[in-house]
Amino acid sequence: MSRRRISLRQELPLLVWLVFVWGALWQDFSPGNLLFGALIAVVVARLFYLPPVELGGRFSIVRAVAFAIVFLGKVVAASFQVLYLAVARGPKVTNAVVAVQLRSHSDLMVTATGHVISLIPGSLVVEVDRSTSTLYIHGLNVRNGEDVMNLRKEVRDTEAGLIRVMGTKDELAALKQEEGA
């Protein structure tokens, strides 16, 4: 396997993140400390080589903020729902494992969707089929076919939101076409 060189631009989000962690851990954001952190970040990124994350090439900050707010709202709502289920239903709760086919085939998008869906209480990614980009999701309190449809729609909507934030142009165009139809 040949090691493809990755451009600095592609590596930049990782480096910025590493420098931010460095500054946060030292609790010191003075220029000298950040410069030293940047130096270490570059050395670490060169020495401990990881497969590059293939970004979609676009990022919408407005959409990201909107997505984050909706996400937090869902987490709050679902946390209370799981709390209620734990107390009220307990052992009688019924679940389901549902296969959801995603639109995107990019690893980043499948990972991000799986993460977000796992972080919202009540759904958990059990298995990923990378070749067909299908997520198998364990849903809490899925009682009937309608709930299964809701869960599937929820996952697809989450993916749509992520595509709007950072999907490639092709994915975005496909999404718009699908919505228009």
Partner: peptide, 17 residues
């Protein structure tokens, strides 16, 4: 209170977020 491992995973991991 939850009956099996999978539903317990929901309780064990999520409310922490």
């Amino acid at each position: 209170r939850f009956p099996d491992l999978m539903s317990r995973m929901h309780a064990a991991t999520k409310p922490q977020v």
